[in-house]
Computed example of a mutant assay.
Amino acid sequence: MAKWSDRLAELGIELPAVAAPVAAYVPAVRTGNQVWTSGQLPFVDGELAATGKVGAAVSQEDAYTYARHCALNAIAAVDALVGVDEIARVLKVVGYVASDPDFTGQPAVVNGASELMQEIFGEAGEHARSAVGVAALPMNAPVEIELVVELRAAGS
């Protein structure tokens, strides 16, 4: 049984504090053996890392990094609710990319989140995914990521 907290330490990754909700919702909810996170923005040390549309004010490369930040915030939300070591596998990643009308690189941006899941969770980080271009995101964020994870069975 893998201890994801040990893997995070090996990678030198420290989970951030859970980002405070910006509206009427909670960061994550559990139902049965799954946790669903709310969409997480690229907050770093309590501040939005960037604003603007990808393909205009924000480069695809920078947006990839912001997607990683969002994914770390989502993992932190799961950790705060049930503990990161309770994750059995990542089931789904949904990424929203605030896109300039001509930008079509949403999958490459959301790879920032997907590749992080695989770095941390290995095979258990392989997941289904959607990468969606949108006109705007809350607070003019360039990227938003949400996760669905399966939890370990009791006693495993």
Rank of each mutant, 00 (worst) to 15 (best):
I145K: 04
G52D: 09
N73G: 15
F103Q: 09
P21R: 07
I145A: 02
G105S: 09
C70A: 09
V82P: 05
L81Q: 07
V134Q: 09
V109R: 04
V149I: 09
E144V: 09
D102V: 12
D100K: 08
N111P: 02
A80C: 06
L151R: 01
V26F: 06
A20P: 05
L41E: 06
G155F: 09
Q34P: 01
F103V: 13
Y66I: 08
F103M: 11
A50W: 02
P16F: 08
G52I: 05
V58H: 12
V110I: 15
A74T: 06
P27E: 04
E123R: 06
A154T: 11
V44Y: 10
Q34R: 12
R7W: 03
E115C: 01
G105A: 13
G39F: 14
Y64A: 01
E14K: 13
T31A: 11
V58D: 15
T65H: 11
R7N: 06
A49N: 06
A63I: 07
E14G: 12
E144F: 01
R68A: 13
N33P: 03
G133E: 08
R129C: 02
F103R: 07
D102Y: 10
P107L: 08
G133T: 08
P138T: 14
V134F: 08
V26D: 11
A77L: 04
V148L: 15
A124N: 11
A74P: 02
A108H: 01
R30T: 03
A80F: 03
N33R: 07
V110A: 02
M1I: 12
A98L: 04
L41S: 05
L151C: 05
A141V: 15
E14P: 00
G133M: 05
N111E: 13
A108G: 05
K3H: 14
E86P: 00
I120M: 04
V84A: 08
S156E: 15
N140I: 04
S114Y: 01
V35K: 00
V29G: 04
S156V: 14
I145D: 03
I120D: 00
N73R: 13
T31H: 09
F103H: 02
F43Q: 00
V148A: 08
L137I: 12
A136R: 10
L116I: 08
N33I: 07
A141E: 14
P107W: 05
A20Y: 06
I13Q: 02
Q34K: 10
L137E: 13
G39E: 09
Y96T: 01
N140R: 13
E144Q: 14
A9R: 15
E61I: 15
N140V: 11
A74R: 03
L72Y: 02
E14Y: 03
E119Y: 05
T51P: 05
A80T: 03
E144G: 02
K3P: 00
L116V: 06
V84G: 05
E126C: 07
A71L: 12
W4T: 15
